[in-house]
Amino acid sequence: MHPVLAGRGVVWSAHGVAVGGAAILLWAFSVPGFSVLLAMTAAPVFGGAALLWVVGAQASHVAGRTWPWWLPVAPFMAVVVLALLVIGVPVRVRWALNREAFETVVAGLPRSTPATRFDRVEVPARVGGYGIRSACLVPGGVVFYEEHGAFFDDAGFAYLPGGPTSSLGNGSFESPTFRSLGGGWYGWTASW
């Protein structure tokens, strides 16, 4: 086989593997916090893609092509994936697809009162595309614990139409950090 054709095959394989790694990484960050084990799975996939990319670049160089058109594709893909992660697109897109299911669950729950203090409520184990470990009524809303959490920390969603308050931090819900998802909804992480 001609070196240019062989190089192209390796390069297209590299791009395919890189797309697979990007999909794994984006899915890992589609939960509040992120799925550490899934994100770690993406590392060797990206390593394989990088190796294939280098082999393809070398084959093109041997064939006399010093600047093939595909050379910047993989670095450009990496920059796009990084930008998507930094601005939180994966969790926002997945949340938008599942928000209605959460709103349906919240509509069926009792209302919280100022005296409410992390009172457990029954919710489905799956709400939309998310696995839910548990949920609690809190002052001003409800907190859902997502099953994957954020490795050693807890994570989930909260419906707090009045916004988060300092009264939400307690012994098992330490230093919660909230990120607005719009309409009184928040993604949160908290240490324990």
Rank of each mutant, 00 (worst) to 15 (best):
R117N: 11
P90Q: 03
F178E: 00
L25N: 04
A150I: 01
H15T: 11
R92M: 13
G163P: 10
G184C: 08
F76T: 14
S134Y: 06
A158T: 08
F34L: 10
V89C: 04
R65Y: 05
V91H: 10
G33F: 00
V93Q: 06
G33T: 02
L38K: 03
F46I: 08
R133S: 13
A50H: 01
P164M: 09
R126N: 13
V36G: 11
R120N: 10
V11F: 10
A18T: 02
F76G: 13
G108D: 15
G56H: 00
A50K: 02
Y186F: 06
A78K: 07
D154N: 14
W95E: 04
V106L: 08
V138F: 02
A190F: 01
G64I: 09
V55D: 00
I132T: 14
H148T: 13
H61T: 15
E146T: 08
Y186V: 05
G131I: 07
V62N: 10
V106N: 08
G33H: 02
L82Q: 13
A43G: 06
S60V: 06
L71P: 01
V106H: 10
T189R: 00
L38E: 11
G33P: 00
L181G: 09
V79P: 04
A23L: 13
A158R: 10
V11L: 12
I132M: 07
S191M: 00
R111W: 08
G108P: 09
L181S: 05
L181K: 09
E174F: 04
L84S: 13
D154P: 08
S13T: 12
F173Q: 04
T104S: 15
A115L: 01
L137F: 03
L97I: 08
A63T: 06
V93N: 04
V62A: 07
S35H: 12
V138P: 08
L97G: 15
P164T: 09
F178P: 05
D153N: 06
E122S: 15
L181D: 07
G140Y: 01
A190I: 03
P110G: 05
S30I: 01
Y186K: 01
S167N: 15
N170H: 15
P161I: 12
A135Q: 03
W192A: 07
L109F: 12
G163I: 07
L168E: 05
A50S: 06
L52I: 07
Y159M: 13
V81N: 08
L137T: 04
F157Y: 12
S60G: 14
W12H: 02
G33R: 00
G163L: 02
F178K: 09
A135Y: 01
A190W: 00
T104K: 15
E100A: 15
A150G: 03
F152V: 05
L109N: 12
W188N: 07
F118S: 03
V11T: 13
A83L: 09
L37S: 12
D119Y: 11
L5D: 11
P44I: 03
L5P: 02
V121Q: 05
G47T: 11
L109S: 12
G131K: 02
E147W: 00
F157T: 03
Y145I: 11
T41W: 14
E146S: 03
T66N: 10
